[in-house]
Design a protein around this nucleic acid. Structure first.
Lengths: 229, 229
DNA sequence: CCATTACCTGAATCACGTTTCATGTACGCG
DNA sequence: CGCGTACATGAAACGTGATTCAGGTAATGG
């Protein structure tokens, strides 16, 4: 796989005040960050509608009114948060895939990265999903960015004959995305040990089962194209 | 495939008043139904939080206070609605799979049924997804019921050698569920023609691409188990 | 035709949370 | 040190909408 990056790269942009003009300003940038961090915790714990700005500012140790110096609205900070999370998931996946040398290995690594992130931040992933109802465009952005990179990887692998050339890269990418999504939801987010704690990582058997499924799906069909590993 | 049913069967139950004791009562049952229908429309259009009880009762042509004679709360009617929708999706799938004679055919039909429902009621499917945040247990119920039937079908097909025996039926069922889910979301719910209307059915190419993916995934690997069609 | 039960009603209650605003406080530069 | 800009604050204004309540109205049985 020649495209270990997942999704397009994009700058973090320079934070700007939502109220006054634009520029940032040292002290303010710190405050803004604290608000985002607090928002992450609160939204993850209570969900968008239950969460309140007051709780966010309290947690950030900041005055209520200050909030509106950095974000236009509750929805606005939520969107900023989703973008941030998206960047982090992709990073987790790219990082995991970095060292892979074969398609299968990259596939495994990519999913492992995704599951690792989900397992590490179960509540955060919930936030992303809630975006569907709070800010649909953000959800689209999230999925689209991930799929883009995935699709590129598939095309490259098809060139080399590592992946069934009859597969439509786009559809396949979305199919894989959905696969990871639901399997993660079922076996990571829903799974709880006796103490109600979610598992630290996806059960090995489940992971292997999933990889068998994916490998089957992508492998060139016998009797056709060469280079099947 | 010997198990065309999708999910467990369950009775619709006899509607009961939430306020007073239990029994139903002709006239009341009709009112209850009207409320549910109105709720379906309103929740689908506005989403849970935007929707208001007043709008629902208005649409149902019923007094505001009357609502609480039939449902304990806003959440309560929402849950009733999800259960109802779940029954309908499964019915759509079962019906579609009914005539199938081969595994591949059944698979195709099942997905087609699912997509047909989604295409016919785009907003309704959104309601089901929103359940994750309004009433998590309902979402679990929804997915679990569908997967149960799916898993049974896979096991049966494995017995006959129609499906790779190395696949874990449970994991595979969830993987397929996710596949249908995201592909449906991307190519049905997000797709709009020039007038902003969603497509009446999944694009044939996309559907074929998906089936190729699924067929690959499930087919017994060459050189192993017999009976591969 | 009169009870009695089963249904119906919408104004008023109550809680809650976003956003605004009038008023400070901190910091950096000349 | 003194001023101007950037940043901070929380009380109050507003909106909103779920839920309750104090009473009606229709239908059934005797």
């Amino acid at each position: 796989m020649s495209t270990p990056e997942v999704g397009t790269a994009e700058d973090a942009g320079t934070p700007v005040s939502s109220a006054t003009g634009r520029p940032l300003t040292k002290r303010g940038e710190a405050t803004r960050r604290r608000l985002l961090e607090a928002a992450e915790t609160v939204f993850a714990a209570q969900g968008y509608h239950e969460a309140s700005i007051v709780r966010i500012t309290e947690r950030a140790g900041i005055g209520l009114g200050t909030f509106y110096l950095y974000f236009d609205s509750k929805q606005s900070i939520f969107e900023a948060l989703v973008i941030d999370l998206n960047r982090r998931v992709r990073h987790s996946m790219s990082e995991a895939m970095a060292g892979a040398s074969s398609r299968l290995e990259a596939e495994r690594a990519g999913f492992a990265g995704f599951f690792r992130f989900t397992a590490a931040h179960p509540a955060l992933y919930r936030v992303v999903r809630e975006a569907e109802f709070v800010s649909p465009e953000m959800l689209r952005l999230h999925y689209t960015r991930i799929v883009e990179g995935y699709e590129a990887g598939l095309r490259a692998a098809q060139q080399v004959g590592d992946v069934d050339r009859m597969l439509d890269p786009t559809v396949t990418a979305w199919a894989l995305m959905g696969t990871g999504e639901l399997v993660g939801m079922r076996f990571l987010l829903w799974e709880r040990d006796a103490d109600g704690r979610p598992p630290a990582e996806l059960d090995a058997e489940v992971f292997d089962g999933l990889m068998r499924f994916i490998d089957n799906a992508l492998a060139p069909r016998a009797g056709r194209e060469g280079t099947a590993s």
